[in-house]
Structures are given as structure tokens and as C-alpha cells.
Amino acid sequence: MYSRRNFPNQKPNEHVILFLRRHWIAPLKIFFIGFILALIPVLLYFVFSSISALWERESFMAMFILALSGYYLFVLLYTFADFVDYYLDVWIVTNERIINIEQKGLFARVISEKELVIMQDITSEIEGFWHTVFNYGDIFIQTAGEKERFVFKQVPRADEVARKISNLVSESRRLRQGALEDWN
């Protein structure tokens, strides 16, 4: 496992300023969906429990138990895999760059990074009832390239984070400019 203070490809004198994941609403949704899926067989039992002829056959009982066990194992695996997908999505803002680590399914992982000095536009968006109540949203960061490079999805206090990144970008440019002037 990595550490929040020591991450892969860390440069000398580079330290983490912001370590972000999606708001806790995201894993709560995952576990809530898992809970609802786990309730479905219970509801179906109340519907079919009156058909006593079925339950008396040993072959039906065996198939039912195996099917139910398989279903619950599937629900567990689905919920766990969803949590792993959530947990492995992180956005790291250091004093030098922004690192975007995104897990796409089980066998795909995208890691992109850009220096702070080339960030052009930083926009935060908090839209919707739940986003407003729990204060989370998206941050869009435009680099000097043509396409939107980074999207921080459902991060807590998106407006504060965007402001902080903007200040870091300004500070980074000021330091770079100062270093160039010293060199000249």
C-alpha cells in the first residue's frame, strides 16, 4: 500500500498539500444499494412461502439454497468491487503538480499528472440538492492543452479546494518566475 505522505514517483522536496477522494456519500450509496439487493430474496420469500408443495421437495430446497448462496456472494462481491473502485480513485495536489489516479473497473487504471504552472482555468461546480446540502461537487481544471485535462468528481468542499488550487498555481508561477529572474 502507498502512504499519503510518500506516493510513487514523488520528486525531491515535493510534499502533499491536498489528498482527495469522492465525498463519503459515494461509498454510502454503494453500501445502500448492496443492502437493498440483499433484501430482495427476503421479500421474495414472503411472496413464495405460501407455496408449501415446492418447499417439501428436497431437490427444490437444494437448488434454492445454492441459488440463494450464489446470489448473496454475488451481492457481496459486487459491493466490495464497487468500494475498491471508489477507494482507488484519488486526486493528489502537491506543491508542484496535480496527480489524477482513476481506477476504471478491475483491470484498467489511468494515472495522469501535470505541473501546477501550466494550469489555466480552475472551475468548481456544486449543482443539485444533495450536493448543496452536503457541500460537495466537481472541479474542472483546464491546462494549456485543448481538452479538459482533470476532473475532480464529487469532492468535498469543492469551492474551497478550487480556491486552494488556484492559490497554489499562482504561488507556483511566482516561484518559477523568481527562479528564472535569479538565473538571469
Partner: peptide
């Protein structure tokens, strides 16, 4: 995956 790529 969690052990290899996750943060402690």
C-alpha cells in the same frame, strides 16, 4: 488491487 494500489 486494494493492497497494491490503495493508500494506507
Amino acid at each position: 488491487h486494494l493492497q497494491r494500489f490503495g493508500f494506507s
